[in-house]
Design a protein around this nucleic acid. Structure first.
Length: 403
DNA sequence: CCTCCACCGGAACGTGAGGAGT
DNA sequence: ACTCCTCACGTTCCGGTGGAGG
């Protein structure tokens, strides 16, 4: 490698392009930051503030803004000799006991509470004690609170909102971050009233705003002159078509930089952005395929085999027959057609295949099925699955026996 | 106009895994 | 350790579907 021991000609601080990085300024989120601050300043002024819910699609800056304001409250509190702790709960925290143990340990700054094993109630009181050990004002940020709610119901919200009446010298308020605007509709009325949350909506960024964000990040992430003209505009344009997601825009820029770097160039070109765009797409669908349940993978492979057989059209019966043969071959239980219909619809929803209904008169009703993704990369991903790897040996003519 | 193809998709039910409460 | 509950996954049963061919 030519560039092995020389510093990269492209990146100066690549980490600033990852989503964990919170920059000093968040362009085009001034209003949301102001609203958040306005609310949370009560933590310092009044001892605690009302709870807040942040709504918005992914990549609209919810998490960054909350972390940013949380940090500001912490420093502001320090100036006035008040301990303000902002705690970000990542979406990986997945059960109620785990949540309490995580919070308790973070507050106490040592791991005294077991991560699991105790009952929810025991975890809760241990967390409560950790918080009340010394006077402090805790702001809890729960990311993807809608998913947590969908999995575990609203009892955790009920517990958290009522904790203040049990704390002697500390307070707690929380911020919920959610993609789903409507998840509060299914709250128990008691929870709804005790929650009493302010709601802040984060709209998606438009192309111009995305470009500003990219410009700001690129200035710190890349070396000077590493960017040819038009690169940022293209990143912004491509990303704004996909719902104004800043996270994706930054990823696009980063991957484009990586491609230029791999190819040993010192400048990122528009062509790199386009390459990055399709690479991300491929990576993403391969992630989706990997996480598919075994039966769906088998079904998808059936679609692929049919696709490769150069039939003009593929119908449900073709796919189902192939599926049956494949399932027998690898000794997986063969599902009934009714179930496969549902699995086909799921793959359709995911955008992996297209299945649209067809009425063929005396030939009956069926669905015309087509693969929607790159056949080679999809196959490669599928065949990496241990139960399906045996199919890697089958080449075109031989695989016909599965059709 | 009627039939009938070949599958669709709703409804009800069975099963087993895993969490909560006791 | 136990019962109770919920949930995902699958199955069985069955009425429904538009149009080519009679």
């Amino acid at each position: 490698m030519k560039t092995a021991f020389t510093p990269s000609g492209i990146f100066r601080a690549k980490k600033t392009l990852y989503e964990e990085f919170v920059p000093d300024e968040l362009p085009h989120r001034e209003k949301e930051i102001e609203e958040l601050s306005h609310n949370l300043i009560d933590v310092i002024k009044e001892g605690r503030s009302s709870n807040v819910l942040c709504f918005g699609k992914s990549g609209t800056g919810k998490t960054a803004c909350v972390k940013y304001v949380g940090e500001r409250m912490h420093t502001q509190g320090a100036k006035e000799n008040i301990t303000v702790k902002h705690l970000y709960i990542p979406p990986e925290i997945d059960t109620e006991p785990e949540l309490y143990s995580f919070v308790g340990n973070e507050i106490a700054e040592k791991n005294t509470i077991p991560r699991r094993g105790l009952s929810t109630g025991a975890m809760f009181s241990m967390m409560k004690e950790a918080i009340d050990k010394k006077p402090q004002r805790v702001i809890l940020t729960l990311d993807e609170i809608d998913l947590f709610f969908k999995r575990h119901g609203d009892t955790f919200l009920y517990n958290l909102t009522r904790i203040n009446s049990k704390l002697k010298q500390s307070t707690l308020c929380f911020i919920g971050i959610s993609n789903d605007l409507k998840f509060t509709e299914r709250f128990d009325p008691r929870v709804k009233s005790s929650l009493n949350a302010r709601e802040i909506i984060f709209p998606p960024y438009n192309a111009v705003q995305l470009q500003d964000i990219l410009k700001q990040r690129a200035a710190i992430a890349f070396n000077e002159n590493a960017m040819s003209g038009g690169v940022l505009q293209l990143c912004a344009a491509l990303s704004s078509q996909e719902h104004g997601d800043a996270r994706k825009a930054l990823e696009l820029l980063r991957v484009a930089g990586e491609i230029a770097e791999e190819e040993g160039r010192a400048k990122v070109l528009e062509a790199d952005v386009r390459k990055a765009h399709s690479k991300i797409e491929v990576d993403r669908t391969s992630e989706v395929i990997k996480s598919l349940p075994a039966q769906s993978k088998l079904l998808l492979l059936s679609v692929i085999f049919n696709e490769e057989s150069a039939k003009p059209e593929i119908y449900t019966s073709d796919v189902y027959n192939t599926y049956r043969n494949l399932a027998k071959e690898v000794a997986v239980t063969v599902l009934k057609q009714r179930r496969i219909t549902d699995l086909i619809n799921e793959l359709n929803m995911l955008g992996i295949i297209t299945a649209h209904p067809l009425y063929r008169g005396k030939l009956g009703r069926t669905k015309e099925i087509a693969l929607n993704i790159d056949i080679e990369s999809a196959k490669e991903t599928l065949l990496r699955d241990p139960t399906l790897s045996s199919f890697a040996a089958y080449k075109e003519p031989v695989q016909k026996r599965f059709l």
